[in-house]
Amino acid sequence: MINVIVSYTVKPEFVPTNQANIQTFLSDFKNLDQSAFEYKVFLKEDGVTFLHYSNYINEEVQHEVLNTPSFKEFQKLRDESGLNGSHKVEILQSII
Protein backbone atom coordinates (compact mmCIF):
# COMPACT_ATOMS: atom_id res chain seq x y z
CA MET A 1 0.00 0.00 0.00
CA ILE A 2 1.28 3.48 -0.90
CA ASN A 3 0.14 6.29 1.43
CA VAL A 4 0.81 9.93 0.62
CA ILE A 5 0.01 13.31 2.16
CA VAL A 6 0.43 16.45 0.07
CA SER A 7 0.00 19.91 1.56
CA TYR A 8 0.25 23.38 0.04
CA THR A 9 -0.96 26.90 0.66
CA VAL A 10 -2.63 29.04 -2.00
CA LYS A 11 -3.42 32.74 -2.15
CA PRO A 12 -6.83 33.57 -0.63
CA GLU A 13 -8.25 34.68 -3.97
CA PHE A 14 -7.35 31.29 -5.53
CA VAL A 15 -9.19 29.18 -2.91
CA PRO A 16 -12.58 29.05 -4.75
CA THR A 17 -10.89 28.16 -8.06
CA ASN A 18 -8.78 25.49 -6.39
CA GLN A 19 -11.86 23.99 -4.72
CA ALA A 20 -13.67 23.87 -8.08
CA ASN A 21 -10.66 22.21 -9.74
CA ILE A 22 -10.52 19.64 -6.93
CA GLN A 23 -14.22 18.83 -7.36
CA THR A 24 -13.61 18.27 -11.08
CA PHE A 25 -10.86 15.69 -10.61
CA LEU A 26 -12.65 14.00 -7.68
CA SER A 27 -15.67 13.58 -9.97
CA ASP A 28 -13.47 12.01 -12.63
CA PHE A 29 -11.88 9.71 -10.03
CA LYS A 30 -15.34 8.18 -9.51
CA ASN A 31 -14.94 6.58 -12.96
CA LEU A 32 -11.89 4.63 -11.71
CA ASP A 33 -11.84 1.47 -9.60
CA GLN A 34 -12.68 2.89 -6.15
CA SER A 35 -11.54 -0.32 -4.44
CA ALA A 36 -7.94 0.26 -5.59
CA PHE A 37 -7.37 3.69 -4.05
CA GLU A 38 -8.66 6.34 -1.67
CA TYR A 39 -8.32 10.09 -2.18
CA LYS A 40 -9.49 12.75 0.26
CA VAL A 41 -8.94 16.50 0.36
CA PHE A 42 -9.13 18.78 3.40
CA LEU A 43 -8.93 22.53 3.93
CA LYS A 44 -7.12 23.54 7.10
CA GLU A 45 -8.46 26.08 9.60
CA ASP A 46 -6.43 28.89 8.04
CA GLY A 47 -8.70 28.67 4.97
CA VAL A 48 -5.82 28.63 2.47
CA THR A 49 -3.90 25.41 3.17
CA PHE A 50 -5.04 22.25 1.46
CA LEU A 51 -4.16 18.72 2.52
CA HIS A 52 -4.57 15.80 0.12
CA TYR A 53 -4.47 12.29 1.58
CA SER A 54 -4.27 9.33 -0.78
CA ASN A 55 -3.51 5.65 -0.69
CA TYR A 56 -3.07 3.21 -3.55
CA ILE A 57 -2.81 -0.58 -3.67
CA ASN A 58 0.25 -0.33 -5.94
CA GLU A 59 2.31 1.95 -8.19
CA GLU A 60 0.27 1.06 -11.28
CA VAL A 61 -2.94 2.33 -9.66
CA GLN A 62 -1.14 5.42 -8.34
CA HIS A 63 0.13 6.17 -11.84
CA GLU A 64 -3.34 5.76 -13.35
CA VAL A 65 -4.99 8.03 -10.77
CA LEU A 66 -2.34 10.76 -10.90
CA ASN A 67 -2.39 10.81 -14.71
CA THR A 68 -6.12 11.50 -14.96
CA PRO A 69 -6.31 14.56 -17.30
CA SER A 70 -8.39 16.67 -14.90
CA PHE A 71 -5.91 15.94 -12.08
CA LYS A 72 -2.98 16.97 -14.30
CA GLU A 73 -4.85 20.21 -15.14
CA PHE A 74 -5.57 20.82 -11.44
CA GLN A 75 -1.84 20.46 -10.66
CA LYS A 76 -0.86 22.82 -13.47
CA LEU A 77 -3.30 25.53 -12.38
CA ARG A 78 -2.42 25.09 -8.70
CA ASP A 79 1.30 25.38 -9.39
CA GLU A 80 0.79 28.43 -11.63
CA SER A 81 -1.20 30.16 -8.86
CA GLY A 82 2.01 30.75 -6.88
CA LEU A 83 2.60 28.34 -4.00
CA ASN A 84 5.65 30.19 -2.62
CA GLY A 85 7.51 26.98 -1.78
CA SER A 86 4.67 25.65 0.38
CA HIS A 87 4.18 22.42 -1.62
CA LYS A 88 5.16 19.39 0.47
CA VAL A 89 4.84 15.66 -0.35
CA GLU A 90 5.17 13.06 2.40
CA ILE A 91 5.20 9.28 1.97
CA LEU A 92 3.76 7.51 5.01
CA GLN A 93 4.87 4.10 6.26
CA SER A 94 2.19 1.93 7.83
CA ILE A 95 3.09 0.58 11.27
CA ILE A 96 0.33 -2.02 11.45
Results as ranks from 00 to 15, higher is better:
52 H>C: 04
24 T>E: 12
47 G>D: 04
67 N>I: 07
12 P>S: 00
30 K>A: 10
22 I>L: 03
45 E>W: 10
25 F>N: 00
66 L>Q: 13
47 G>K: 06
89 V>Q: 13
5 I>Y: 05
22 I>P: 00
86 S>Y: 08
60 E>W: 02
66 L>W: 09
11 K>E: 07
50 F>A: 06
5 I>P: 00
28 D>C: 02
17 T>C: 07
55 N>M: 12
77 L>V: 15
84 N>A: 15
14 F>I: 08
69 P>Q: 05
13 E>A: 14
40 K>D: 09
84 N>K: 13
28 D>W: 04
95 I>S: 05
77 L>E: 13
90 E>V: 15
22 I>V: 13
40 K>W: 04
94 S>K: 15
4 V>R: 13
29 F>M: 12
25 F>D: 01
12 P>W: 00
44 K>V: 05
76 K>F: 08
59 E>W: 11
22 I>N: 02
86 S>G: 07
89 V>H: 10
39 Y>F: 13
14 F>H: 10
65 V>L: 07
75 Q>G: 08
51 L>I: 15
23 Q>F: 07
20 A>V: 03
3 N>D: 06
58 N>P: 03
4 V>M: 12
65 V>F: 03
89 V>E: 12
13 E>W: 09
27 S>K: 06
50 F>N: 03
8 Y>S: 03
56 Y>R: 01
26 L>F: 03
95 I>W: 04
25 F>R: 00
87 H>R: 15
83 L>K: 10
95 I>C: 06
95 I>N: 07
88 K>W: 01
8 Y>G: 00
50 F>P: 02
28 D>L: 03
5 I>T: 10
85 G>V: 14
82 G>N: 11
56 Y>S: 00
82 G>C: 11
34 Q>E: 09
60 E>F: 05
95 I>D: 04
94 S>N: 15
13 E>M: 10
62 Q>H: 07
